[in-house]
């Protein structure tokens, strides 16, 4: 599921530089004082600030900064584990906007612009410079639709922008890592989801019920035999479902032998 690294352009390097700057501001004294909850993982915050950010392929540096700051509040990194930043949810969205979510690119562009205007008009600063408590306050007003009617320029209700970003963040946190999010399976581990399998025997289910089934950290496409043509976002239209001749080595074709002895119900 890992992606081939892309060539890093000069523009990407500039974005990385600005991200470090933003993180430094967000990690400042005012933010720390007003947000004891967020201070639970100062080491993680410092590490995030020190690490050069990876390139974004669709979003501008400013948009990427804003999106990272938003997803960091939607699913924060805290004592309950890694959050949306660590899951690379923003990268999932960025990559999907070049593919399956391409139709939403204008909604993102316009939404980010309105979101930025709203932050500056109401709180006097860009989102990335606000302390976490004020960032949450902004997001609540955008979510509730209260940011509509402020002159920020949200198309329709600000709630529509929030809903879109939240839905895609959830996909990037809890979806299959094949699509670029849920890095290191942090989303599935948060839920306690024991992972994708292609067979769950009665004994597996019983182990699950005794809390003895270890999580399976695999993407669906780490299993042999599944067609990937339609999985990578955005190219579905080019690869309609087509006939696929049976492959004699296809491991999905096996009749698994477990069934009869392990039925827990019936008789």
């Amino acid at each position: 599921m890992s992606e081939t690294p892309r060539v890093i352009s000069r523009r990407d390097l500039l974005r990385t530089a600005s991200a470090v700057g933003a993180a430094a501001v967000a990690g400042g004294g005012e933010a720390a004082a007003q947000a004891p909850a967020a201070a639970a993982t100062p080491a993680a915050a410092a590490a995030a600030a020190a690490r050069p950010r990876e390139a974004y392929e669709t979003l501008t540096a400013r948009e990427a900064d804003m999106l990272e700051a938003i997803v960091a509040r939607l699913i924060p990194s805290d004592a309950n584990g890694p959050g949306a930043i660590e899951a690379r949810a923003a990268h999932y969205i960025d990559r999907s906007l070049a593919g399956a979510l391409h139709a939403e690119i204008d909604a993102y562009r316009a939404g980010f612009a309105a979101f930025d205007r709203y932050c500056r008009m109401s709180r006097g600063k860009p989102f990335v410079e606000l302390p976490p408590g004020d960032q949450d306050s902004v997001l609540i007003d955008v979510e509730s639709g209260a940011a509509t009617g402020t002159g920020a320029g949200f198309a329709g209700s600000s709630a529509a922008f929030f809903t879109m970003v939240k839905q895609h963040t959830w996909q990037g946190m809890f979806g299959d890592p094949y699509y670029g999010g849920n890095a290191d399976f942090v989303g599935w581990d948060l839920l306690g989801y024991p992972g994708v399998r292609t067979m769950v025997t009665a004994a597996d289910q019983q182990r699950l019920e005794r809390n003895q089934l270890p999580p399976n950290h695999r993407s669906a496409y780490d299993f042999d035999g599944f067609n990937k043509a339609t999985a990578r976002g955005g190219h579905d239209h080019d690869h309609g479902p087509g006939p696929m001749p049976d492959d004699p080595t296809d491991d999905l074709a096996q009749v698994h032998p477990y069934e009869q002895g392990e039925l827990t119900h019936g008789d």
Partner: peptide, 14 residues
């Protein structure tokens, strides 16, 4: 069209 079991990955996003 014709689909086969190979088209049915355990993939919630898809």
């Amino acid at each position: 069209n014709v689909l086969t079991r190979r088209d049915f990955a355990p993939d919630e996003i898809r």
